[in-house]
Design a protein around this nucleic acid. Structure first.
Lengths: 152, 152
DNA sequence: TGCGATTAAATCGTGCGCGATTTATATAAG
DNA sequence: CTTATATAAATCGCGCACGATTTAATCGCA
């Protein structure tokens, strides 16, 4: 026991905690994405919404929330910002007025052309080969799904 | 090409993006931590500060920021909240008045007793064996450090 | 048909995270 | 010494996240 201060039995140093690794890795991704997304004028969560709509246009707030694992209290103001920028439109579904359908505008579709180069920059920045990233991705998803099941 | 809408060449579905896995795994950790930390009355970032101080008391804002990879604009208000709760004290260093030294109060030290059971709950919630978590942790740290180096 | 229960978004308040800037102190160079 | 530079923290503004609540529309069922 040669700790500088106290008996550390039990409590891991922060650097060794997997939750902190995930937490700080999220911040690190943001730092890499920021300058790339600044050129599009969108934030990272906004970019995720665009990706989701590029894949499937005309989704409800709820469907977007399910895909991104976010609630309407997060998405509603974010979508209003995207609408304000002219990248998406929001309108009540006439078939079910409770739902709001989100669609890409022409400007929103146009940004899709930038996505591939951004992805390449990110892959480059990870410094890891693609197979390793895929493997890591699979493991993190498994971890996340376990956590979400435990939280429910 | 049997996509419902468009030609998806190049843009991965969100679910397959490693950045999104990390992003959503961070949220998942928070969801598991929330009810555990609520009983202590602290948030997850505040808890990280406490862990850092339990390991080494009497740190400057800058040192905490380095450990947690956060800036003073994030830490200062957070530390003021911890001070308001009576868990830490903040005081200018007489040797260098630019620096603020953060120390645990008796109440702050007392919370340390709860930490082990929280860690056990989290490990349990991951649903993964300890060796696998350690391996995953190492890989995520490597990814994070690559990203931070690329962002710099 | 009517009315309670359910569902979908939106609203509100709090606490991060961070870019940009400011304030205050310390250090270095002439 | 004094002035320029560097460093540490704080301040300000904005955009997430999310718990709790509210509003509005639909569904279930007698």
């Amino acid at each position: 026991m040669n700790d500088t201060q106290t008996d550390n039995a039990g409590v891991l140093p922060i650097a060794d905690m997997i939750c902190f690794s995930v937490y700080s890795a999220g911040h690190a991704f943001n730092r890499v994405y920021k300058p790339l997304l600044d050129r599009l004028g969108v934030t990272y969560p906004q970019y995720l919404v665009l990706i989701s709509l590029w894949d499937r246009d005309d989704q409800t707030v709820g469907a977007l929330g399910k895909a991104l694992m976010l609630e309407s209290n997060t998405l509603t103001p974010l979508l209003k910002r995207l609408e304000g920028m002219g990248l998406v439109s929001r309108a009540r579904d006439p078939q079910d007025e409770r739902q709001v359908r989100v669609k890409l505008t022409e400007a929103g579709r146009a940004l899709r052309g930038e996505a591939d180069s951004i992805t390449m920059c990110i892959l480059e920045a990870t410094g890891l080969p693609i197979e390793e990233l895929r493997d890591l991705q699979t493991k993190i998803v498994r971890l996340r799904d376990h956590l979400n099941r435990a939280a429910a």
